[in-house]
Design a protein around this nucleic acid. Structure first.
Lengths: 333, 333
DNA sequence: CTGAAAGCGCTTACAG
DNA sequence: CTGAAAGCGCTTACAG
């Protein structure tokens, strides 16, 4: 028998059940008033026929696609691949898993640095990761009326109505700096980046304020675009610092490498801390970690965006980070 | 002036240009025959009005959504978070970037282990990562006629028409085992996993065959579901092996941890190799890496799927992996 | 070269 | 409780 390869639609279900498509739609979507046994019968037939509603048609009709986009602001910048990508990947993974719980899916939205946002994907709202100064993505969403949630505070004016999910950098940096102070640092430093996002700026500000408060000579060194993180780390160590916090794992690993090449033991005369995800099964490398939990951030972004789409007022969320001192995972002895 | 918040549609563009929507659609999509200056004028007006075509309507009409789904087979298994997730994340990232080049977007498709595939996202095709035995996702796509590309060979029968993208495990394991043989191993081992996918099975087979060929006592130890990788690694080291290859970074790191707790130097009496992405800026940990390049895999999957959707015959792709001996990234001296 | 009209597959007032 | 019909915003034969 030549089974037609055409997809079964709501009409086919209606015909098989001897009902109108209205009743089928209502029975399947728990809308309107349908006799209980009719509802059951329709569902059974739909299942037997393998009916899958055409989501494009549904989206056209209802105006909701149940797709949430996720976009990274400084996607095309040179250091992105090594530094921000792992974080971004984890945010996406966390968002994707959480989205399922709310009946949504996550789509990665391409952002062209030249042409800006090109939302060819029909999505109900957008998660913008690490917005930068004069962010073209935020501007694009604003002008098109696309609901937005950001991971990281927008730096531009006029986005007070946007729900923001942030890492608790203040508490996290507090833990890091307290750790360094307890270890007796006399010359702390920060290996920072050139990207102008709230995370970078806040980290630098918190570091500087803390140094001022404790009357310590704090050095902030930014890895320039295109510069090797290892070269920057070596330059920093040559200035005689005794404790360095790194903005991300790439910079932190570069510091470890630079320290090793100079024979500086970590943690010893030199302390290294970094933002990053510590693999609990990896051997100790001497560094302390400030774990950001990007998957939790992604999940929080989804919850905030779904609530926003449902008309809830914008509410900001702060996700705690965890300080992991060196040697935590090393087994006793 | 009370600017209506309604989205501007093709009708608005047509009205502003004094043309029919047909001409507007053709001018914007480079279809049909439109006078060159008419085309330009339409485009300018569309730009001025900020017209963004409704993708749901377009998808309903054309039957193509320009969305590619990506799903992981054993998503819900317990060890997934630690072992497969990083790989999967990188595949998704690579796929997302490549998809842009082809005018498509990537959507993460949720897979319920109980209810199987629930494609609520309207996608033109699906990338299935690491299909397992009796894979419900593949079966779901088959029955619904959704075009598929897999990362990793399907284990089930009847998917000969599916394009497959694979890591060149054979060459990669060849490099790993040659490295171990040169180092003089007398008792090699493999720390493997319980997941029945082609990658795991092929790795085990290649290892066993090689041991047989070289007349060496090869030990294969599988980390059981729920078992601590570190405990498994310790149990393996207690059997007096002198070289271990780990299926992934989690297991590799567990081996490093177990070796450290036993005071076994790596690489020394004990050699450790693992599949995984070596951070070029991380200090040497003594292990050798077989780098899989998951981002390249993701990109290759997208290219294969797009070609498949365009009617090209199924063609398999093998992505090379790179062997990185220990100490590669350590600076001289 | 341009336009009027059909229709993609749904959901949802509205009428019985 | 059920059905006939409108319409979401596009693309595309078809007719001029």
């Amino acid at each position: 028998m030549a089974t037609s390869r055409k997809r079964v639609g709501i009409r086919d279900v209606a015909a098989a059940a001897g009902l109108s498509i209205t009743t089928v739609s209502w029975a399947l979507n728990d809308k309107g008033e349908v006799a209980p046994d009719t509802r059951e019968r329709v569902r059974r037939i739909a299942r037997e026929l393998g009916y899958q509603p055409n989501q494009a048609a549904r989206a056209l009709r209802t105006g909701r696609t149940r797709i949430l986009g996720i976009a990274v602001a400084h996607r095309e910048s040179a250091p992105w691949e090594q530094t921000y990508l792992p974080y971004y990947r984890s945010v996406v993974a966390g968002a994707a898993i959480e989205a399922v719980e709310h009946g949504h899916a996550i789509a990665a939205i391409p952002v062209s640095p030249t042409r800006g946002l090109e939302v060819q994907v029909p999505c109900d709202g957008l998660i913008v990761v690490d917005p930068v100064r004069n962010d073209p993505i935020l501007a694009g969403c604003r002008s098109r009326g696309i609901p937005v949630v950001t991971d990281g505070r927008p730096l531009d004016e006029g986005y007070d109505d946007v729900p923001v999910v942030t890492n608790d950098i203040a508490a996290g940096m507090g833990a890091v700096l307290e750790h360094l102070r307890t270890a007796g640092t006399a010359h702390p430093a920060l290996l920072s980046g050139a990207e102008a996002d709230a995370y970078t700026l806040d980290t630098e500000r918190l570091f500087r304020n803390w140094c001022r408060r404790h009357d310590l000579p704090g050095t902030v060194r930014r890895v320039r675009a295109g510069e090797s993180p290892v070269a920057a780390a070596e330059a920093l160590l040559d200035r005689g610092v005794d404790a360095v916090h790194a903005l991300n794992e790439t910079y932190g690993n570069a510091l470890l490498l630079a320290a090793a090449s100079r024979g500086q033991e970590v943690p010893g005369r030199l302390r290294i801390t970094m933002m990053g995800e510590r693999d609990p099964f990896a051997p100790d490398n001497g560094a302390a970690y400030l774990s950001l939990d990007p998957a939790a951030i992604g999940a929080a972004c989804v919850r905030a965006l779904v609530a926003h789409l449902d008309g809830a007022p914008a509410e900001n969320v702060t996700v705690p980070c965890t300080f992991i001192p060196p040697g935590r995972a090393r087994p006793a002895g």
